[in-house]
């Protein structure tokens, strides 16, 4: 069996688990089951779920926030201030959410089966000019932040602006925005740190959830050995991914900040608590209301996530 896999961009930390999975599956089946990974050749990233639904390719990665209405159930993982603190925790909670029948049903509308997450650390802000010393300094700060994070920033008086990720560097250099929110690897690859002066270490307003899915029919068509090889390799692929992110990407992050003399801004816990109070609860309530209206067990999903965070799993 040969599967086509649709990713985008180029090979990077964010795609290491897929690369590893392909390697493991081919090894375990002695080359009987191979994956042909394409970076952008088969689809654009916002159409990957459509491609899975059509059956144009068998596996793909996408981010829930690209199109909330396509996958409302998993956007629970993108709510601000959930309190997830490690990649391992992000992975475990994502997997638990993916196994929930309502979530599986949501993705089944696309003939898709959720395979694994691409855990990303919490977003934080990189910015130009004087470093903020308290949340009050965010008043009037222009920031590139989309969706839930943008809404959260608005609650402390910041001015969120939307633009595509590729325009962010230029918008910062030209002063259209003073700051941008991304995960560290994206701050590095989109060059937002090049001229930046500060970075928030613990704002942690949230992150994006980017699952890897497979076409359900293709999964069913696999031989038992092939399916076992695929599903049995997910854990090892994720271990490799997290190890790579923690030990390669995050290892480069600190020095990258130091090289450029970027100030690390850490807010006192009571400030973060106040921010969380102002932003998290209204966002969660709005999400639950909107998705209950869609017929999802929204409260239950939200409780599942917050419960696991509280348990510290």
């Amino acid at each position: 069996t040969e599967w086509n896999v649709s990713l985008w961009g180029k090979r990077r930390a964010f795609t290491e688990h897929v690369e590893k999975l392909a390697e493991l599956v081919s090894e375990k089946t002695d080359g009987a089951f191979t994956m042909n990974i394409s970076y952008g050749g088969l689809s654009s990233n916002r159409e990957n779920l459509d491609g899975i639904s059509i059956g144009a390719f068998e596996m793909a990665q996408f981010c829930a926030g690209y199109h909330a209405d396509k996958n409302p159930s998993i956007t629970v993982m993108e709510l601000p201030f959930l309190g997830v603190s490690t990649l391992e925790q992000e992975r475990d909670i994502s997997m638990a959410v993916y196994k929930h029948p309502a979530v599986a049903g949501d993705l089944a509308r696309w003939n898709a089966t959720l395979l694994m997450p691409s855990p990303l650390p919490q977003y934080n802000l990189v910015g130009l000019g004087d470093a903020p010393s308290s949340l009050a300094d965010f008043e009037g700060l222009t920031v590139r932040a989309t969706g839930g994070i943008g809404a959260a920033m608005e609650t402390v008086g910041a001015v969120p602006t939307s633009m595509s990720a590729t325009e962010v560097r230029q918008a910062m250099d030209s002063g259209v925005i003073k700051s941008a929110s991304f995960a560290p690897h994206a701050h590095m690859s989109f060059g937002t740190i090049e001229n930046a002066t500060w970075w928030t270490t613990n704002l942690n307003p949230g992150t994006v959830n980017c699952p890897v899915v497979v076409n359900t029919d293709a999964l069913d068509d696999l031989t038992d050995d092939e399916r076992a090889a695929l599903l049995g390799s997910v854990d090892e692929a994720l271990d490799h991914y997290i190890d790579y992110y923690n030990n390669q990407t995050m290892a480069a992050w600190g020095p990258a900040l130091d090289e450029r003399g970027i100030t690390r801004v850490t807010f006192p816990p009571e400030e973060i608590e106040a921010f969380k109070k102002a932003a998290a609860e209204p966002a969660a309530k709005a999400w639950i209301d909107a998705n209950t209206a869609r017929g999802l067990p929204a409260q239950e999903l939200f409780d599942l996530v917050t419960g696991m965070v509280a348990d510290g799993s």
Binding site: M163, E167, Q170, A171, D173, S174, G175, V176
Partner: peptide, 15 residues
């Protein structure tokens, strides 16, 4: 000026 501010200050926007 919308692409790049030659005087080093803020440019005015995107292309």
């Amino acid at each position: 000026f919308f692409v790049y501010n030659p005087f080093g200050g803020d440019a005015w926007g995107t292309p």
